[in-house]
């Protein structure tokens, strides 16, 4: 089993790599931006931190968009944070950016959606309410704590894609998915035992339900 971690040059890629290696001793785990290596992967993790604009600029610069579109129909994908946000139709960050459009919805700044007394970014441990059963929730309690750090959040009118929600001033998408795609706003690689369990579940997931 070969798991590729998409390297777009931003974020805590090393943390993701360390965590996946810890739970997947028998897998090959590589952080790569190489088109051939991404295409050869059995599973792909799309991490991301920082601005979604940078994420897309890097994706285009490295000519990786076609690889992702192809993977979307063929292999298990795990998006993390900005890697999840990128899968929606549109992100309002940096004046607005078209997303991959894999999920209906918009990614908007918290301040536009809620009362102003909450600190932004949301930085810390929040409870994640599982909205639908999924193999990636295996051995993880409903309402378990996961680590979030973000100023933008996704909102959708398609509840069938919402696998988990969390509340920060209002309810927002904590995990989204369909078919072979699972993506989280929170950081499993930084969420201690439950986060490691989720990554372990991903390494064991065949992409079905």
């Amino acid at each position: 089993m070969y798991i590729a971690i998409l390297d777009l040059g931003v974020g805590n890629l090393r943390s993701v790599e360390q965590a996946v290696k810890t739970v997947a001793a028998n897998c090959t785990v590589e952080v790569t931006a190489d088109v051939a290596r991404i295409d050869a992967a059995d599973k792909i993790i799309l991490p991301g931190q920082g601005a979604v604009g940078t994420w897309f600029d890097q994706l285009e610069a490295r000519d990786l968009r076609a690889s992702l579109e192809s993977a979307k129909t063929s292999k298990p994908l795990l998006g993390i944070c900005v890697g999840m946000q990128a899968m929606f139709d549109f992100c309002t960050e940096d004046g607005g950016r078209e997303g991959l459009g894999w999920f209906e919805g918009r990614v908007e700044h918290f301040s536009g959606l809620q009362n102003q007394t909450l600190k932004i970014p949301q930085m810390g441990w929040n409870t994640v309410k599982q909205m639908q059963p999924h193999p990636l929730w295996h051995k993880i309690d409903d309402a378990a704590y996961f680590y979030f750090v973000h100023s933008y959040c996704a909102n959708t009118s398609k509840p069938e894609n919402v696998l988990a929600s969390a509340d920060y001033g209002h309810e927002f998408v904590a995990a989204v998915g369909a078919d072979n795609i699972f993506a989280t706003q929170f950081h499993p690689e930084k969420s201690h035992n439950d986060g490691l369990q989720l990554l372990r579940n991903f390494t064991e997931w065949d992409g079905g339900l």
């Binding site: 931003v10 805590n12 931190q49 920082g50 601005a51 970014p121 973000h150």
Partner: peptide
């Protein structure tokens, strides 16, 4: 923060 993101 522009380069690495405020979260960092």
């Amino acid at each position: 923060s522009a380069h690495f993101g405020s979260q960092c």
